[in-house]
């Protein structure tokens, strides 16, 4: 099966010989977006049916499996912390002084009414580790020339088995992403903007997510400060840290 896929990829890539290699592009994207670890503050604006609301948080991540988030705003959420290790998620709420374990199925639920699931939000998957990629064309997005890259997951556990990225030719970051179901139905679309150069890497500081099957205005995700490859002590990703 893998061989077949490889042959298929090869034959397609030879057909698009004038385009760069998909894997190379993924590698470059990962170099920009992924890191061994990172610390960032973010603001999420959720457009609900009735009101829009903003949630601010600070997140520490290391690798693909560990993530720790502390909520800063609104006041009600302040001090709430989340720890994700592999498939397990714990939430600490300061008002109740409780550490609550969230079962696996909850990871797939929307975060606070947004168009993002906990999985979407807390996972930092290197594309190269899960997807094959083929460049299928070139288009402009927001006035910038982009490669259109089609990604197909070889890892059956990926939530989105198909991705389509519009990758900035010069800066090697996606400016638009589409997430597809296995059968090819478009599920979500995100638009990435406010690209900044941080310590030599390009990073989009604003992402707008939209669930394409559902009516609604989508969710904005805006990154404030971001630090790559900082020294994060191991205790950050421990349950003891939740109560601190």
């Amino acid at each position: 099966m893998k061989l077949l896929l490889a042959i298929l990829c090869l034959s397609i890539s030879s057909a698009y010989a004038q385009y760069p290699d998909g894997k190379e592009i993924l590698k470059k994207i990962d170099q920009n977006l992924s890191s061994d670890n990172r610390i960032f503050t973010s603001k999420m604006i959720i457009h609900g049916r009735r009101t829009s609301r903003t949630i601010e948080s600070k997140t520490w991540t290391a690798g693909e499996k560990k993530s720790f988030t502390e909520y800063l705003f609104p006041a009600r959420e302040q001090g709430t912390k989340m720890l994700k290790l592999d498939d397990q998620l714990w939430i600490y709420s300061p008002s109740t002084d409780r550490t609550i374990q969230i079962a696996g199925h909850m990871l797939r639920q929307s975060v606070m009414g947004s168009d993002l699931s906990y999985e979407d939000l807390m996972e930092d998957n290197r594309l190269l580790n899960h997807y094959n990629a083929v460049v299928t064309g070139a288009e402009n997005v927001a006035g910038r020339p982009c490669w259109v890259v089609k990604l197909t997951a070889f890892d059956p556990n990926m939530a989105y088995q198909g991705l389509k990225l519009w990758v900035d030719k010069e800066r090697n970051i996606p400016l638009k992403e589409e997430m597809y179901a296995k059968s090819g139905t478009l599920l979500k679309r995100s638009e990435l903007s406010n690209v900044e150069n941080i310590n030599g890497r390009w990073y989009p500081k604003k992402i707008v997510f939209k669930d394409m099957l559902k009516d609604g205005e989508g969710t904005e995700f805006i990154i404030g400060n971001i630090q790559f490859n900082a020294a994060i002590p191991e205790y950050v990703f421990s349950k003891a840290n939740l109560k601190k």
Partner: peptide, 16 residues
């Protein structure tokens, strides 16, 4: 016990 639900604004609600 703790009740886990969501608030009127969609935030996660945890209450003892």
């Amino acid at each position: 016990i703790s009740l886990i639900s969501s608030t009127m604004y969609g935030e996660m609600a945890i209450y003892n």
